[in-house]
Amino acid sequence: MDALYTAAATANGREGRAVSSDGRLDLTLAFPAALGGDGKGTNPEQLFAAGYAACFASALGAVGREAKVDTRDASVTAEVGIGKDDDGGFALSVTLRVELPEELQNATGRELVERAHRFCPYSKATRGNIPVELVVE
């Protein structure tokens, strides 16, 4: 693959900072309270959730335009879970909640969501690596 764009960011752990190479992203990082931290910063799971939600919404728009279906009123919420895995480490899971406008709450809307899941780069990256559940609302 020839990259059309490359993003770069540097972090120094879950408690510290994350800064993009252009300086537009500059965040304090902290463990969430649920993992024993003070929760006074963002965390990698939130960042992944935001990126995946944005990318999936964009993919839904692309497949909608291709199908000549207006998906502008759709929204995507990504829920990223972290928990212990069988190897003693940690693993992620994702639930993508796609809220479709009333006129797309049918088989056509569900098919567009499935097509977006096949098209989205985040979905391609996670496929076969972590569980991703699609929920159409």
Rank of each mutant, 00 (worst) to 15 (best):
K84A: 15
S93F: 00
Q46N: 05
A50M: 12
D38I: 02
D86R: 11
R65D: 14
E45K: 02
R115D: 09
C120G: 06
A50N: 07
S75Q: 09
V135L: 10
V76Y: 02
F48P: 08
V76F: 02
E102D: 14
G41S: 14
A57W: 01
D70G: 06
G89W: 01
T10G: 09
A54K: 03
S75G: 10
Y52D: 11
V132L: 02
E66V: 07
C120K: 00
A34V: 12
A125N: 03
T77D: 13
V19L: 10
H117Q: 02
L134S: 06
F90Y: 13
L29H: 05
E45R: 03
D26H: 04
A91T: 13
G39C: 10
R24H: 11
A62L: 14
R65K: 15
C120M: 05
E15I: 08
E111I: 04
E66D: 15
T77K: 12
V63S: 03
C55E: 07
Y5T: 14
G83M: 08
G109P: 01
R14G: 14
V63K: 06
L35E: 14
L92I: 07
Y122P: 04
N129L: 06
A30N: 10
S58D: 14
E45S: 08
C120S: 09
A11F: 02
S58H: 08
A34Q: 09
E103C: 03
R14P: 09
F56M: 05
G39M: 08
G64M: 05
G81A: 12
L27G: 13
N106H: 08
A54G: 15
N129K: 06
S58G: 15
R14I: 03
E114W: 00
E45D: 10
R127K: 11
E114A: 14
Y122R: 03
A30H: 02
D2C: 05
R24E: 12
F56A: 04
A8S: 12
R65Q: 15
L60N: 06
A107Q: 04
D87L: 08
S20R: 02
A3D: 12
A107K: 06
V69D: 11
G41I: 12
L112P: 01
R72M: 10
D26V: 03
V132Q: 03
G41W: 00
R17L: 08
L100N: 03
Y52W: 09
P121D: 10
T6D: 01
R65V: 07
M1T: 15
A116P: 13
D86N: 13
E99L: 08
H117T: 02
P131V: 09
K68Y: 00
E103A: 15
Q105G: 08
E103W: 00
G41Y: 02
L35G: 09
G83K: 12
R17N: 12
V76A: 11
P121W: 00
D2P: 10
